[in-house]
Design a protein around this nucleic acid. Structure first.
Length: 297
DNA sequence: CTCGATCCCTGGACGC
DNA sequence: TGCGTCCAGGGATCGA
């Protein structure tokens, strides 16, 4: 559930709380969500958390070491239910605490994640660079022109494109649905089928929503809390997400929920007109496939 | 390139 | 009250 605004909220909180702290020891519980548990145990102690950044839905804990020259970082993805917070050593460990970093100020940085859909990895040097290159543009840093190109050049459905971290990094189900509603784009419309003006509007709305959500410390559905334990408030501003059957804020038409790109997608069937038909889409992609086939021959 | 299906995992919702 | 069942959801992976 944590998407860009929630991760930004947590990252800012951690930057304030733990930047400059040195890690003394690491204790691991379950490790099936960690790329390389041994490397974490080996490399994290003695390193200092220089600063905490957000990278898409990841938190990037930039690390320094007295002798190591290569840049290194701890990548943390919160998945659906992850949290990373500093706690007093005396405080009992919450259930599903899987990673504990003892800090040089006597506190513990704890990773808790009931479902373990998160991810953790220690990366350094070229491997770190390589990993970061797998992801697409940050929606808040991309230019409008680049964003339009990105979407317009693809034949995937708009919802799939927004969710694809290798295209745009940081957007998840909530902010995809919310931005498509604001831009009046049906989630099943393909990027290529959109007019540039529509994509420009999507870009603007997506940025507006993300900035507003960051200002409100994210959306707290289920139980998301920032690193200082405060909930977010953006859920008050949701227009379609989790509002199936409720009236559209623009036209009162009941909001619908369908599965697009394997994810539940909420939209207004009146404001967000459906593409002509699935059949035609299939036919078109078949034609493209044949063209490519011929070209190869 | 793009798609759908499947798996991972647990807690919350729901039915009885 | 308690038990069983279903489902959500980000991402990796695989076959079509």
């Amino acid at each position: 559930m944590p998407e860009l605004p929630e991760v930004e909220t947590v990252a800012r909180g951690l930057q304030r709380e733990i930047a400059g702290r040195r890690i003394l020891t690491v204790t691991l519980g379950k490790t099936d969500f960690i790329d390389n548990p041994t490397e974490i145990e080996l490399n994290l102690p003695t390193r200092t958390i220089e600063r905490v950044e957000r990278y898409g839905k990841f938190m990037l804990l930039r690390l320094t070491h007295p002798t190591a020259k290569e840049p290194s970082a701890l990548l943390v993805h919160l998945g659906m239910t992850g949290s990373l917070m500093p706690r007093p050593v005396a405080q009992p460990h919450a259930k599903h605490t899987h990673v504990v970093f003892l800090l040089d100020d006597g506190r513990e940085l704890r990773y808790v994640d009931p479902r373990r859909f998160g991810r953790m990895a220690f990366l350094a040097g070229p491997r770190l660079q390589e990993e970061l290159l797998r992801f697409g543009a940050d929606p808040l840093e991309s230019t409008r022109e680049a964003f339009v190109d990105l979407i317009h050049s693809r034949h995937s459905r708009s919802k799939a494109l927004l969710l694809d971290q290798s295209v745009i990094r940081g957007v998840g189900n909530i902010y995809a649905d919310e931005s498509l509603w604001r831009a009046k784009i049906h989630p099943a419309k393909t990027g290529a089928s959109l007019k540039p003006a529509q994509i420009k509007l999507l870009y603007t709305k997506l940025q507006e929503i993300l900035r507003k959500a960051i200002a409100l410390r994210g959306s707290s559905i289920s139980d998301f809390l920032g690193s200082d334990g405060l909930p977010g408030d953006y859920q008050q501003h949701h227009r379609v997400y989790d509002r199936e059957g409720k009236p559209c804020f623009r036209c009162k038409t009941p909001i619908r929920r369908i599965i697009v790109a394997g994810r539940s997608s909420h939209f207004c069937p009146n404001c967000q007109k459906a593409p002509r038909s699935q059949k035609r889409r299939r036919k078109r992609s078949q034609i493209r496939r044949q063209k490519r086939h011929k070209r190869r021959k």
